[in-house]
Design a protein around this nucleic acid. Sequence first.
DNA 1: GGTAGGCGGAGAGATTTTCTCCGGTTGGAT
DNA 2: ATCCAACCGGAGAAAATCTCTCCGCCTACC
Lengths: 211, 211
Amino acid sequence: MRADAERSRRRILDAACEVFLERGPDAPLDAVVRRAGVGPGTLYRRFPDREALVRALVTDLLGRLTEAAEEARRVEGDPYGALRRFVHAAADLRMGAAIVVLLERLVVDEELVAVRRGAVAAVEGLLGAARDAGRVRADVGMGDLVLLCVRVSRPLPGGLAALDADGALVHRHLDLALAGLAEAGGSLGVPLGFDEVIAAAGRPGEPGVGE
Amino acid sequence: MRADAERSRRRILDAACEVFLERGPDAPLDAVVRRAGVGPGTLYRRFPDREALVRALVTDLLGRLTEAAEEARRVEGDPYGALRRFVHAAADLRMGAAIVVLLERLVVDEELVAVRRGAVAAVEGLLGAARDAGRVRADVGMGDLVLLCVRVSRPLPGGLAALDADGALVHRHLDLALAGLAEAGGSLGVPLGFDEVIAAAGRPGEPGVGE
DNA sequence: GGTAGGCGGAGAGATTTTCTCCGGTTGGAT
DNA sequence: ATCCAACCGGAGAAAATCTCTCCGCCTACC
């Protein structure tokens, strides 16, 4: 693949990530084109339709996410520190986008399930270790962690996004949320699992390929 | 005003709130019409254009928000309890919508500034009291509180919204975030003020009427 | 310096959105 | 009970937006 083609591909994926995050999975591809600063021909040549673009984006993000989780575990000795490092990295990677777009607009095939399973396992490892070390309350599940990340790291709506041009605010509020994970101020009851999140995000009537 | 007219008005405002929250302030008014279950004529007769609808919605929400803050203070003796009760009530009222739509699509006139000032003062009272009682960490400002509420109480994107059909999840995660407000896990530095939020949300080049 | 592959943009056609007008219906005063 | 002013929903025209193709120029690599 030629260098300029690779560069375009990267710019399109990054732009698509932002746009889908801000305007939902039905956002006009025109908006992606504009944000990426490429011509429409360039997008449609590489990604024949919306599905192809979404699939490429999701695969890319899940891969980087898994990598981030593994690196966090490797770099930080302390389980809670590892979780914290990962959550911040996930925000930088726009983890939210993966989830937003992941299941609603996509037929989940075997390849995607495998990639997703890898990511979930890596993150579950981090969360489990932090919980075992007593640094995360027991009534918080993977579902809570993921949804909290989605909620806190989504771009703020409209003009408020300008407040967080450099991402500092997201990290600030992630730390606030993480502090909430540590300290119980009353019980939450049963932790929210990840399976329920998957089930809710899936297209109606679709089994999700072997789950 | 006739009873059926009032009923329609209420349904339109409620629908608009949901739709703007889910799809941003540029969401098609058609979508509002459909969700409200009224005809297009009904919407356009009462609200000549988008601006009129947004203005009515914001005014309505800010009023109810102020009321909720005052009631929380009245009902709960404990300052932290009052703050907590208010935050949950604000989520039910879709406080996020007020902020989302508030300043970007709206010329802020004197009336709106007055209503907004009332709301801000009421909430500031709650937050200040909780902080004075030592129940909220000192490095959390009004801006943090508001943005955290916006973030956590926004509807989840796409199909994930189904997870929270009854609103229980929002309340769960609000409690998680509130726990983070209480317990410092490392300093955040300077609290985020509300003025900065207002400034960011305002339309570019618009003074904001006397602020 | 040649060339295969990539690039951006103009624009046709389809879809969506806005907003008006009108015939039928309903709430509420008498 | 009756009347009528006010309100309602929907069909549809006009405008805006979105999708996607084709083509002439450019540029990365050999």
